[in-house]
Design a protein around this nucleic acid. Structure first.
Lengths: 203, 203
DNA sequence: CGGCGACTAGAACGAACGCTCTATCCAGAG
DNA sequence: CTCTGGATAGAGCGTTCGTTCTAGTCGCCG
């Protein structure tokens, strides 16, 4: 019986509801600021269900929440980069959409990975590892886009570090300042930085 | 009696010990992850003293901790920028020293303001405000340096947004990856971005 | 039908949380 | 000396924390 599909439809329903709720709450309140009871309450699940799906407790749940945020942003990143051949223009569009999302949440929803991982440095190694993997994956997506736009591989990977770091920092700065300006400036400056590597466009 | 100096020497001693301890702990564990009793214990003060100096409770203490982090980084920023006439080179040196500090703490001590403010978005407006003021002050210091290096005022303020955002993001990325690479790349790329504004140097 | 495993349900535990409160200490003013 | 007020000291409040545990529900296989 390899078929786990039948009742997985239901179990995956509860499990996924818990992870999504955990991710959303930790995005706003941080890892330490979010309680398991609050998660189970808002997810419409009970404490028993939470510990059934996450026997590792809060840390395992936090790790799953970070991974969900990882997947969601990876997809957003890919969509933005695929929609526009020029990576510089794509980044400008991406920062604009990040700023829009942030404003629409009344500046509450920053990067889910960042919010969850900050403050767990020495105490929750699983979460640290998941966050490191998320950053690495995002960098790889950006680097692949740059390589596709005829960048040298070394330059692409190098630039990807700064692209991701600047996006993270600008998202945080915009959230704290309650203003789209940091993200907007980051988009423009990343485009300028990329353009400074010779090619003005995509060919 | 305007002279408050005599016993202020002692009272300021305890008060400052509390704030410094709070700042250090919140830098590592976040705002929610740090307890007032832990702060008082590690500061060698009692609960009574904490609430005597900070009748506003944890939020007032957190705000003071953010302001201390603000002052400390403002000073580090000024030192780095004053030591080198070319702002681009100064930023490379700054990222190197940030990376060194991070590595020396075994990747535990990130930006004290960021760690403290993340996760307090909707719940602690005083902390949010103090963090916004910190970012604005740092931006002003960077912008002033750029203006002194013959940048147009509009360009300088615009660039300052991205400089601060990138520094924040790279510090976070370096901490999570436990690697100096993100900060090192950020320094090089910020220097390149600044250099792209015409002047290759300081005159 | 009986039994079994996946899942739900929530009471209960000890510890820690932020905060309030009273008591005490002590230097300096009168 | 007394008196005063800033500072120290810590017991104790009610609440919430993460976690454990037992009981119960449900669908499916034999």
């Amino acid at each position: 019986m390899k078929t786990k599909a039948p009742h997985d439809l239901e179990t995956a329903g509860t499990r996924e509801r818990i992870v999504r709720t955990a991710s959303r709450l930790m995005q706003r309140q941080g890892y330490e600021g979010t309680g398991i009871k609050q998660i189970s309450r808002e997810a419409g699940a009970t404490l028993g269900s939470v510990y059934h799906f996450f026997p590792g407790g809060k840390q395992e749940l936090g790790t799953a929440a970070v991974r969900l945020g990882d997947e969601e942003f990876t997809e957003l990143l890919r969509e933005s980069l695929d929609a526009e051949p020029d990576p510089a223009k794509a980044l400008v569009a991406l920062t604009a959409s990040l700023a829009e999302g942030l404003r629409e949440s009344d500046w509450l929803d920053g990067c889910p990975v960042t919010s969850t991982v900050v403050g767990t440095a020495g105490s929750a190694p699983g979460i640290q590892r998941a966050a490191a993997e998320a950053f690495a994956r995002w960098r790889a997506v950006v680097a692949a886009k740059l390589v596709a736009a005829r960048f040298a591989e070394a330059d692409a990977e190098d630039l990807a570090h700064t692209v991701i770091a600047t996006l993270e920092g600008a998202e945080l700065a915009s959230q704290v300042a309650r203003s789209e300006t940091p993200l907007e400036a980051a988009g423009r400056h990343l485009a300028r930085l990329i353009a400074s590597y010779g090619g003005s466009g995509h060919s």
